[in-house]
């Protein structure tokens, strides 16, 4: 019994220690961000590997999610004779929820795991240490640009996801199922609010981008510098990111749409 409590205590202490290190790490990154504006090409290169390389998966997933929403939504709405509302259904579910959340989950799987593996590998091959000995702060030179790139890429990817999804739903709804295109767009426009729906979706995706990139970079930087340790850190990135995204999504949704 005592043993159980002790191991629980040890786990708790370990978790808090990691949390503390994670926050110090974040502070260090944030301190490095102003310097990035002098060397923005570093960030641009990272936007390429973080954002552009995630584009394909986002485009394809967005299209299919939108098409499925179109089919499912139509089948439900047609029972009420309200198939003209398909546009609203699709746009609100994509812009408010699916766009930010699904693209953040995909981002964690594609870019987050790659970031952790890359940083972990740089650590295990002494590249970070080597940089430190060359009097270059690896957090400012390597980590901060990647963080910034994640912050920039995530909202763009979420917006692309939502836009492609709406187009996919329109293709299915109008092209396949024959929903009137005027009704589709006009109802959507009437019911989707720029501030309440679209901006809140964008805010969500910025928060998710922040958290996922932070987790990915911290796990990489904190990984045990062996191939096994890096592998484990990569898994942790994906799992912890998913938890963080879904948990934060609930909190943000409650804050944004709770009082309506």
């Amino acid at each position: 019994m005592i043993k159980l409590i002790r191991s629980l205590g040890r786990w708790g202490l370990g978790t808090f220690e990691r949390l503390g290190r994670g926050h110090l790490f974040l502070m260090h990154i944030l301190a490095g961000i102003p310097g990035l504006f002098l060397r923005f090409s570093l960030v641009i290169h990272q936007v390429y590997s973080v954002g552009v390389l995630s584009l394909l998966i986002i485009l394809i997933s967005g299209l299919f999610v939108g098409m499925v929403l179109g089919l499912q939504g139509y089948n439900t709405l047609v029972d009420f004779g309200a198939e003209e509302s398909l546009g609203v259904l699709v746009s609100l579910s994509l812009v408010r929820e699916l766009g930010p959340v699904v693209s953040a989950l995909l981002f964690a799987g594609r870019a987050g795991s790659a970031l952790t593996a890359e940083i972990g590998l740089m650590k295990s091959t002494e590249q970070l240490s080597g940089m430190e000995m060359m009097a270059v702060d690896p957090i400012r030179r390597v980590i901060a640009p990647r963080f910034m790139a994640g912050l920039i890429s995530m909202p763009l990817l979420a917006a692309i996801f939502s836009a492609v999804g709406i187009i996919g739903a329109f293709l299915v709804g109008h092209g396949l199922l024959g929903v009137d295109d005027g009704a589709f767009w006009s109802q959507m426009q009437a019911k989707t609010d720029f501030y309440d729906d679209i901006m809140n979706g964008v805010i969500k995706s910025v928060v998710f981008g922040f958290v996922v990139t932070w987790i990915a970079l911290f796990e990489g930087h904190d990984a045990t510098p062996t191939s096994e340790g890096v592998g484990r850190a990569t898994t942790r990135t994906v799992v912890h990111s998913a938890f963080a995204i879904l948990g934060l999504d609930f909190v943000l949704t409650a804050l944004m749409f709770g009082d309506e």
Binding site: L121, M122, T125, E126, Q127, S129, G130, M131, E132, M133, M134, A135, V136, R141
Partner: peptide, 30 residues
């Protein structure tokens, strides 16, 4: 540290840069 050089066991070259850019790295940084 700018006046100290260190040669790591693995070399610790930056894997995303070419040989040329690796050697140029400390010059460009400092």
């Amino acid at each position: 540290r700018k006046r100290m050089g260190m040669l790591f066991q693995s070399g610790a070259l930056l894997t995303d840069l070419t040989v040329y850019d690796n050697v140029a790295f400390p010059l460009r940084e400092h």
